[in-house]
Design a binder for these strands. Structure first.
Lengths: 244, 244
DNA sequence: CGAACCCTTGATACGCTTCAACAAGAGTGG
DNA sequence: CCACTCTTGTTGAAGCGTATCAAGGGTTCG
């Protein structure tokens, strides 16, 4: 496990010069914290605290009820959040593609994770002990602001999700999903990075219903489905559908 | 508006002794921040920033899209979060009874509220400008921790809500709601503090369905409904129902 | 080539909504 | 004081949206 080697570097560097300290910083970590980039001082302070784990498909990142002492992020890969049922079955609720926070709230409360997390595509995970983070928030206002923003975004995202679940039917949720998941470059294509059954789970519908809905939108001329690529033919109409 | 008088006291007191400073602190504010009680220094720092508003039934606390510069809490009374449709109609999604935070996330992002908020029972509101709060978070570690915890709790609550919406049917959500809303003292009664149609809205069902479900649970012997009081006759069975 | 997936399609079932009617209180004005 | 209206909750009948179950086709991989 390469976590060990990173750790030993961090320890041996001690109160290092910036050159040595840089060695504890791994490429990709910046993406989790998001722009603007962390300052050198922040990186030096955070570096020794951070741990990475590399997990393969199907492995559990954490389990429901398991006490949480670390904030967890996905640096790269994909992790599903949900509830494990008996056996290998897994009731997927949310899909986290790196780089993004996976569980930014549980560790603060110290009361254990609320969901299970399972690796969907081999993933690199980042763990940040909240006990170690706390003092840093006093020393680094920017880092503090960053964490507040990250949590605020989490709240807003979840608020949006609950709104969608309460107020929109499946077709509207799908239209909404398609619009937010279109590739940033070519604005009219959605390249599915996951299986359709996982998309369906996020939309809180069955794979069968998703299939029917796609077909429905297709025969209405709004989209064009080719395997795992969906071309959006009529953005305006999709937005009208999605917006309430 | 008594906000003005409070404000003038805060201003005139300047670098006051603790006796004068206490005057800017209003009874009830502590409840919003939750235990343990704020320190004297924290109160002195927060006091001049906080503003209270007293709003009557039906008034809008804030509107969707309206830019948010303040964290908003309900000191006392009840406020509904949702989306205003045309006219006076209001699609209620969440119900906030004071003391509790109403919108703790929008102001951090500075991107406007995501929902409308409307007063359901005459309410006292507390507003805390995030620009004023920011520097305080550097000076008061306890206050910082408190805010992190509050946001973390918001995330966990919303996570629970989405889980319920995705995985549970209406009956299970109702059982769950009844269990979490039973009066803390006499553990077998639920005294509704709102109209049933508002309870239904929170459960994302229609009032008709709520009525039928209550009748259903009643004839199953699990509860006893008398107007706005519901007696839970079989906690165990309700928990079995609620827990997936 | 068969086995194991994934997606699709069809038939049917069920949960919840919608619409409509009605009963029971609360407030209002003659 | 009674008739009137407004609001809230309840009940019934019908319909829509989505789940469930079952079957078949397309890939991928050993």
């Amino acid at each position: 496990m390469d976590t060990a080697s990173v750790k030993s570097i961090a320890r041996s560097s001690g109160a290092s010069n910036s050159h040595r300290a840089l060695e504890v910083w791994m490429p990709g970590w910046d993406a989790v914290f998001g722009p603007p980039r962390l300052s050198e001082a922040e990186r030096q302070a955070l570096g020794p605290l951070l741990r990475t784990r590399r997990l393969m498909v199907g492995e559990a990142v954490f389990q429901r009820g398991q006490s949480a002492s670390h904030l967890v992020a996905v640096v790269e890969g994909a992790v599903g959040l949900g509830v494990a049922t008996e056996g290998p079955a897994f009731q997927l609720e949310r899909n986290v593609h790196g780089p993004a926070w996976l569980d930014i709230s549980s560790a603060w409360l110290g009361s254990g994770h609320v969901q299970d997390a399972r690796v969907l595509h081999a993933a690199t995970l980042l763990e940040l002990p909240v006990d170690g983070l706390r003092p840093l928030l006093g020393r680094f206002p920017d880092l503090r602001e960053r964490m507040m923003l990250a949590m605020a975004r989490a709240v807003q995202n979840l608020t949006g999700t609950t709104h969608d679940l309460m107020a929109k039917d499946a077709q509207k949720r799908l239209a909404s999903w398609l619009l937010t998941h279109r590739s940033p470059s070519a604005g009219h294509d959605v390249a599915l990075k996951e299986r359709k059954r996982e998309v369906a789970a996020q939309l809180a519908i069955t794979p069968e219903t998703l299939s029917r809905l796609l077909r429905q939108l297709m025969s209405a001329g709004l989209i064009e489905v080719k395997g795992y690529t969906i071309r959006l033919l009529n953005l305006g109409a999709l937005q009208t559908l999605a917006h309430d």
